[in-house]
């Protein structure tokens, strides 16, 4: 591990230690917060009992479907928009302001239409993630040096061969950014939906625990989500580094 990583680890552990001390010493009431060590033991108990395995698989399944859909659709739509400069110019302001629209207001509507099942959550996760993929696909295609076009023609490459051999590898760094954001946004979308109105899932379990003044379960689950999402993000970051470092990105 590098020196920076050690400092980072020390900061995170320090923050948890400080929180532990604040709660243990009574400076923060146990009605508001429980000590991090209790969160860990509580989480261990919950995971071991298996009572939340269903919620966890439901959340992860929904996130996975939303991700897969948004990355595929986002890439195809992004490439399509990029091919039509006039459409792209007209859509640009809508894409850039897209995230200003708080899409969660559509969530109750989606529940109303599709019923209380996984579809509305996947739809919200998808709506949240797909535009990040579109925007990053566009950015990636924009950044391809124009000279590659000449190189492709000098090599008498077909349109498909050029897309596969030049455009996609050249856009890969941005496509990966799009993938990373899609994963993060799909998580945010799905968990927030579960939180507001859902038949199950991690977000629902937290909201349920909150409503029942069950701080132990609530904080244990929060810790679980924080650790899970951070682990996934770090894995993606590591993969990205391995894939792209050699290219000087």
């Amino acid at each position: 591990m590098t020196r920076l990583a050690w400092i980072r680890l020390a900061i995170v552990l320090g923050a948890f230690a400080a929180l532990e001390w604040l709660v243990q010493s009574g400076r923060i009431s146990t009605h508001t917060m429980i000590p991090p060590t209790r969160m860990v033991t509580e989480l261990w108990a919950i995971l071991a009992s298996g009572e939340l395995t269903g919620d966890i698989t439901q959340t992860l399944g929904n996130v996975a479907i939303a991700c897969l859909l948004s990355v595929t659709v986002g890439f195809v739509v992004g490439a399509g928009i990029h091919a039509i400069p006039r459409l792209r110019r007209a859509l640009d302001p809508f894409l850039t302001t897209y995230y200003a629209v708080p899409f969660f207001v559509f969530y109750p509507l989606l529940v109303y239409i599709f019923g209380m099942n996984n579809l509305p959550m996947i739809a919200i996760g998808f709506m949240f993630a797909v535009v990040a993929m579109i925007i990053n696909t566009l950015n990636g295609l924009d950044k391809i040096p124009r000279v590659y076009d000449k190189v492709a023609r000098m090599h008498q490459m077909s349109r498909a061969s050029m897309a596969l051999r030049i455009q996609i590898p050249a856009a890969a760094p941005n496509l990966f950014t799009g993938l990373k954001l899609s994963v993060a946004y799909a998580f945010i979308g799905v968990i927030a939906s579960e939180f507001i109105l859902a038949p199950g899932g991690l977000g629902y379990a937290i909201a349920f625990a909150y409503d029942n003044f069950d701080n132990e379960t609530m904080y244990a689950l929060m810790l679980f989500i924080l650790v899970l999402v951070t682990a996934i993000n770090m894995t993606l970051h590591y993969l990205e580094q391995r894939l792209l470092r050699r290219q000087g990105f």
Partner: peptide, 22 residues
């Protein structure tokens, strides 16, 4: 800055909704 950036990026991509009860 070097220490904080990855921490900030990690915080950015967390589903912060989970913290709302807090």
């Amino acid at each position: 800055g070097d220490v904080a950036e990855p921490i900030l990026v990690a915080l950015y991509s967390l589903p912060k909704i989970t913290l709302y009860p807090v």
